[in-house]
Design a protein around this nucleic acid. Structure first.
Lengths: 202, 202
DNA sequence: TCACTTAGTTATCGTCTGATTACTTAATTC
DNA sequence: GAATTAAGTAATCAGACGATAACTAAGTGA
């Protein structure tokens, strides 16, 4: 396989593993296993574990902004821009670990390298909302706040309690703008995959 | 010193260290150094590093709910309850690492022990808002969303760029309800303390 | 004062982890 | 078809980390 394709494969695997366990909680061996390559190869392709995580963050940000710009350009639908971008954001959850890897980066702002990258990435998103999407400061703030709540809900695996706890049910239906069914479906397949992995002794 | 007092001292130190580096990024030796005790003693008092982190989360949640209930009881001021609790939340930022340790717990929802504790803690806060503070579902959702954005801003050390970037300036003034001056002051003293620690070679 | 508890420390160990080195195998080029 | 490059793997290492064990010093009560 071409090195470039293998690199993207490793990045995808790393995104889900980092999303689950965070930067420090993830080992390069876990990423390698998820990507189907040897541990030294992961290190060799990206240099260091830190550079691998920075590449994951960059990829996540690229995907995020691409999805937002696509939602901005897609003027055919009569849906207002705020909702279109909101739906685009939730659509990113289909790429498992993407939003959570970003979140892990956000809470490591103290780190010299990771913190700087995460900060710049966040500011870039804000600039998009304000200067490309035409959001007001208040709209931008509310959009980002809702996004952070969604990330937290995903991180907490709140969807697992959707049917078990009426308060969770209520909170989730208010947190996810009309896309709660998609989130529940994603969570279900994810749980099934996890069960399969556990079953095969991985 | 009494073991109970020493335990609280270690918990405070652990809160700031976990807040800075997360669960996996923190070593028991770092916590011990910050608390002024030996590394094995930290382990002996709490059993394991995981139990120490769970104790940090529990303490953070206790402080948070206590602050909220105090804001609820304090009916003398003519300030509406939403704002009172909002200000109480920002006041928690004075306890360095408290909100960030919670945030680190939130994004580790996959972990069997930590995830369960973080999930239950979050639900407890939602229940308080809905059934004690009398918030509507929408008010609760918006409050939590704003809280998660604030946590993210703190995690990203966004306040460092307050004077350097007009977009950051705008974002922060909209994210922090009128308490931005306090946040900037906290960030400044924190940077000074960090510089002192670096200066003494710690 | 002697036995006992409380509050710690020093020394050490086994395991895990990121990284390095050296080797292999399959294309591709000349 | 020999030489070179690309795409990997197996073996291994040095450092760090959580945890354990063994020891010590300072109260404290009978």
């Amino acid at each position: 396989m071409r090195a470039e394709d293998r690199r993207e494969l490793i990045l995808q695997a790393a995104t889900t593993v980092f999303g689950d366990h965070g930067y420090d909680g993830t080992t390069t061996a876990q990423v390698a296993r998820a990507a189907g390559v040897s541990q030294p190869y992961v290190v060799r392709v990206f240099g260091t574990k830190e550079k691998l995580f920075l590449a994951v963050l960059q990829r996540a940000l690229d995907h995020l902004l691409a999805a937002f710009r696509a939602a901005l350009t897609d003027t055919v639908s009569g849906v207002p821009i705020q909702r279109r971008i909101g739906l685009a954001y939730i659509g990113l959850a289909a790429d498992r670990g993407l939003l959570l890897s970003l979140m892990h980066g956000f809470v490591l702002g103290r780190d010299p390298e990771i913190g700087a990258a995460a900060r710049e990435g966040f500011i870039l998103v804000y600039r998009f909302l304000r200067h490309e999407a035409g959001f007001s400061p208040d709209e931008s703030q509310q959009f980002l706040a809702g996004g952070m709540l969604i990330n937290t809900m995903i991180g907490l695996r709140m969807t697992d309690d959707f049917d078990r706890d009426p308060d969770v049910h209520e909170l989730l239906t208010h947190a996810f703008p009309e896309k709660i069914d998609i989130m529940l479906e994603l969570a279900k397949t994810e749980r099934r995959e996890a069960a399969e992995r556990a079953g095969t002794g991985a």
